[in-house]
Design a protein around this nucleic acid. Structure first.
Lengths: 139, 139
DNA sequence: TATAATACCTACTATTAAGGTAGGAATTAT
DNA sequence: ATAATTCCTACCTTAATAGTAGGTATTATA
């Protein structure tokens, strides 16, 4: 029930891109956050293939956002990096349970999945940059 | 970002206990849901050590709930079986990120953790038994 | 009081996913 | 030409998941 370090590192890194035009290299990010350069490369390849960032090669190259931060949600980011975003998927390929149709648990898993999905979809990178995500754990 | 099969099997099994007094054996549950008997045993040991069920040995033995279903939340169950309930814990032991104090991401993780925790704490086993958990994915 | 059914306990094993590393090829500003 | 970058593929190590195996302790009941 944990999010992987890929997502953790991606969010930290992406929080440096405060404008759509800003170009930052993997080396800079790797040094600032003490994250393995090679690992970050792989993370940004994933982000690129999902249309979140664009790479530019050569000196002064690096990555930039392919959309303004206001149009990138955390759902987009997490879906690029996590194998499975749903916390539990009883209807996937390997459904071992023979009671799927009348299962009393499935509605609960669906609701939980949707709760998470909706929240992730509602938070944008811009909100994080501006510290607009209220810390709900204190309320 | 997935819940383990332990929790999946536990919920399926616990959904058979519709009264606090009802005693069901591992064998019965294992046969009904085609879950490994040995694995289920281990799951129920965890549930017992967290005070959710009580075992009774001997013939006609088995497990029963140690509280009425209305007083058992899914949070209780999941916390008994999952190593980590928080989706991301930046403040745990292995905090590699040197920017914890001023991190712009932490409030987001906290909010997400709390969202999940609150939901899990709000759903009782009784609600699941009575199919009172609305499938939120359709709305 | 023997038997059989159950929970309970500890150690082991196999598979998969996470979290990286390594080595290079392609591109491009200077 | 060079050096800095992204981009690509394969590999490695560790830890967690998902079980198995083999037994011991307890207890209803015949």
């Amino acid at each position: 029930m944990k999010v992987t370090t890929k997502t953790k590192y991606a969010l930290l890194s992406l929080s440096e891109f405060d404008r759509e035009e800003k170009i930052i290299s993997i080396r800079q990010l790797s040094e600032k956050y003490s994250i393995s350069k090679k690992y970050l490369e792989r993370i940004f390849c994933d982000l690129e293939s999902c249309g979140i960032v664009e790479g530019k090669r050569g000196p002064k190259g690096g990555y930039k956002l392919s959309k303004p931060p206001s149009q990138i949600t955390l759902k987009d980011i997490i879906e690029s990096l996590e194998k499975e975003v749903k916390v539990m998927d009883c209807e996937g390929i390997r459904l071992q349970c023979p009671f799927n149709k009348n299962c009393r648990i499935i509605p609960f898993w669906k609701t939980l999945n949707k709760l998470i999905e909706d929240y992730l979809g509602s938070v944008t990178l811009e909100q994080i940059l501006r510290k607009e995500v209220v810390d709900g754990s204190k309320s």
